[in-house]
Amino acid sequence: MNTNILQVKDPILAIENLSVAYDKNVAVKDVTVGIKKNTVTAIMGPSGCGKSTLLRALNRMHELYENIHTTGSVTLNGEDIFKMSAIKLRRQTGMVFQRPNPFPTMSIYDNVIAGYKLNGINQKKQERDEIVERSLRDVALWDEVKDSLTKKGTFLSGGQQQRLCIARALAFNPEIILLDEPTSALDPVATSKIEDLLITLKEHYTIIMVTHNMSQAARISDYSLFMYLGELVEYGKTKNMFTNPQDRRTEEYLTGKFG
């Protein structure tokens, strides 16, 4: 593996020449990048630059739609993600969406354990209890909801719901967590809670987050990836990119000339 092209050493996720097209419309063009383990990597860029499209290629979400075509290669711990079963891949990559989307018919408890239950994995109640408690503690929600685990997930506030969705994604102990603008629907207080959470979570997980909030990327990410019109313009340590961007487009975006 050529670390030069991927730009980081020993990446957990190696993306090479990845392109994604909606019918004939190429949304992500030939992206090559490596993601480092136990870091927060932010994908930035103006609207329509292919941020989410890139993220959603990583757990093969695009396969739900016939008009989307993906080419190139992605390896997770050296294993080609397009060759493993989608189910296995998705258990190793949790995903959190723009708007909190707990399953509306399920209780808080069932939301967290949904991945196990709906996969038909048989467990003792005690095991389930442990997974639920661990996942909710991981997202700092346990103390807030431990007395109302049987209430519907949708009764929580927006920020709590989003943390519940992160807990749901953590329940399987994934390698990577993919977050698609996870705070864009939340108020500032809830946002800062999620940001703090992501910083603590990177001890155990690798986090890739789409954001169009530059200051958020600056606050919590270790690496940043700047995309423009489907291309990867610049990739590097967040600190370096914000203080000394290499590309004119990155600089213009970061200084607010467009975006």
């Binding site: 979400m61 949790g94 995903m95 991945g115 996969n119 399987f172």
Partner: peptide, 9 residues
């Protein structure tokens, strides 16, 4: 999508 993203068939 959230369901499928959990690896649920």
């Amino acid at each position: 999508e959230a369901g499928l993203a959990l690896g649920i068939p």
